[in-house]
């Protein structure tokens, strides 16, 4: 019967129509195949041992939002802790600026050279000294006496030259060559460059 010929069709209730779905039953042959396949799959499931991480994976899938929230919180807390305790200085890495410093009798000249992704803290165990410890990872001796060129790494445009440790006249060190160099300015002196 064409679909448009609805007026001649007998009308029934929705519930009766839905009950018709109960009659959609498979044949005996279907169930025979079903049982055979299921038995095979069950045996495979019995033989196949799930790897140890499967239970954790199921747990993560079932609690996806909770796991994501917890992971985010842990990462955030770790980030705060690392930053707070100075385990790692993000600023040194992201904002380090290499400058060339020339020192003569009473003149200190700083020329920015480039941006670098490395930095080294001299007084890394003493937070008070860290503000003075953003610089000097390499020293290149100049031909003239008391006139040296410094390749400096700084976290900010303003820096201070001062002894890194009490009773220690050194304010620079050379971590690449394990050399120390005498201080030229025992008194802290602030410099800035443009």
């Amino acid at each position: 019967m064409p679909l448009g010929n609805h007026n001649t069709a007998p009308k029934i209730s929705l519930e009766s129509l839905l009950l018709l779905k109960r009659e959609e039953k498979p044949s005996k042959e279907f169930w025979d195949n079903f049982d055979r396949d299921l038995r095979q799959k069950t045996l495979q499931a019995l033989v196949h041992q799930e790897p140890w991480y499967t239970c954790y994976w199921h747990f993560i899938r079932m609690n996806l939002y909770a796991v994501l929230s917890l992971s985010t919180a842990i990462i955030f807390a770790l980030g705060l802790a690392i930053h707070h305790f100075g385990w790692f200085s993000f600023g040194d890495i992201n904002n380090s600026i290499i400058a060339e410093v020339s020192i003569s009798e009473n003149i200190l000249e700083v020329k920015p050279k480039s941006i670098d992704s490395t930095a080294l803290s001299i007084a890394k165990n003493d937070p008070e000294k860290q503000s003075h410890a953003f610089f000097v990872i390499d020293i290149m001796p100049h031909k003239k006496t008391r006139n040296e060129n410094f390749r400096k790494v700084m976290a900010s445009q303003t820096f201070s030259l001062a002894p890194a440790y009490d009773h220690d006249l050194r304010f620079v060190s050379d971590p690449f060559n394990n050399k120390s160099h005498s201080s030229f300015h025992p008194t802290p002196t602030n410099f800035s460059y443009k």
């Binding site: 007998p10 029934i12 009950l19 009659e23 959609e24």
Partner: peptide, 20 residues
């Protein structure tokens, strides 16, 4: 969709349709 087996259908719908 699957076709149902008409022979096993015995609900109200079949009775309603039996006038045709």
């Amino acid at each position: 969709f699957e076709n149902i087996n008409e022979e096993v259908s015995s609900s109200e719908i079949v009775e309603a349709l039996s006038v045709k």
